[in-house]
């Protein structure tokens, strides 16, 4: 068997794949954060809890209503997004005139409430979610075995990420959105309902988190705290990438996932901390982030 730096090539590709999968989740989650931050100027601390809600929604749809994975992929993001829009209307919308830090504190409190309620109901052991039948099994790529579901996660997340990029950067709707990010009062004066756009944008960002949650359900266990630690890593990803650009969020997400995967191969002790170390280095060299602008 061939080796690279004393590591069997199978192991290397295996970890690289896991890294890409993690990167796909980092990309989807940081993308949602970036979209929300762009228009609302709020860092959505509830994002991790909403990702978890997506996974639980998939679990309920399958086990209570008998709706399979593909239905969940459509319904769960809509449901999570809708719950987000209600929260935005009832609570977040009262904070736009205040210091942005209050938005962070409010969403942190909401995350505690949501995670606490789910932990109360379901404990913290985690529930299994069955792999969809069409995507079980694996295929031989010649140099490694690729489990079909993992391949699907990468493809689907790329589609979602670039779809979002396309809508925001290349369509009329996206142009309104970018304009409202620059100057909401001006856009409103052209007769565009900015508050409604804000609500829908928050719903969309949250829906992305819900979508990521459904994607995660068959790989990771469905667990009330699955988003709690992930969101902190995603914050570091966001700091590294800078929230200025959509493409930046996507590239940073995938890139850091891969780096994390490689660290697991070459220096496993640091795999938990490598992203934070990279964040520290980026802050020293380029404080605004790799893709950020002041």
């Amino acid at each position: 068997m061939s080796e690279i730096f004393g590591v069997p090539i199978q192991v290397l590709f295996g970890q690289l794949l896991i890294g890409l999968i993690n990167g796909a989740f980092y990309a989807m989650l940081s993308l949602g954060l970036a979209v929300i931050f762009g228009l609302l100027n709020i860092i959505n601390f509830t994002h991790g809890a909403q990702y978890m809600m997506g996974a639980f929604a998939a679990y309920f749809l399958l086990n209570k209503l008998g709706l399979n994975y593909w239905w969940a992929l459509v319904i769960a993001p809509l449901a999570v997004g809708a719950s987000g829009m209600v929260a935005e209307r009832l609570m977040l919308s009262r904070l736009y005139k205040l210091d942005h830090l209050y938005g962070l504190l409010l969403t942190f409190g909401l995350a505690l409430v949501i995670q606490g309620i789910f932990r109360n109901e379901f404990g913290s052991a985690g529930l299994p979610y069955a792999m969809p039948g069409q995507l079980s099994g694996a295929r031989n790529l010649g140099f490694m075995f690729l489990p079909n579901y993992r391949g699907w996660v990468i493809v689907a997340s790329l589609l979602v990420c670039f779809g979002t990029w396309f809508v925001i950067e290349r369509t009329k709707l996206g142009a309104y959105l970018r304009a409202a990010t620059e100057n909401p009062a001006m856009v409103q004066s052209f007769g565009i309902n900015v508050p409604r756009m804000v609500t829908l944008t928050y719903g969309f960002g949250v829906g992305l988190a819900g979508f990521a949650g459904v994607m995660a359900a068959p790989i990771y266990q469905v667990n009330p705290l699955m988003g709690a630690d992930t969101i902190i890593v995603v914050f570091a990803v966001v700091v590294i990438g800078g929230m200025g650009s959509i493409m930046g969020a996507i590239l940073t997400g995938f890139g850091l996932g891969v780096i994390e995967g490689l660290t697991k191969v070459f220096y496993p002790e640091a795999s938990n901390t490598v992203i934070f170390v990279i964040m520290a280095i980026v802050l020293m060299i380029r404080p605004q982030g790799l893709f950020g602008s002041r």
């Binding site: 609570m91 942190f108 409190g109 505690l112 606490g116």
Partner: peptide, 21 residues
Amino acid sequence: LGSWFTITQGAIFVVCVLAFR
């Protein structure tokens, strides 16, 4: 009560930010 403490904490956060800054 375990996670009820977390829920209470979260609720206090929300109330403080919205109405009791």
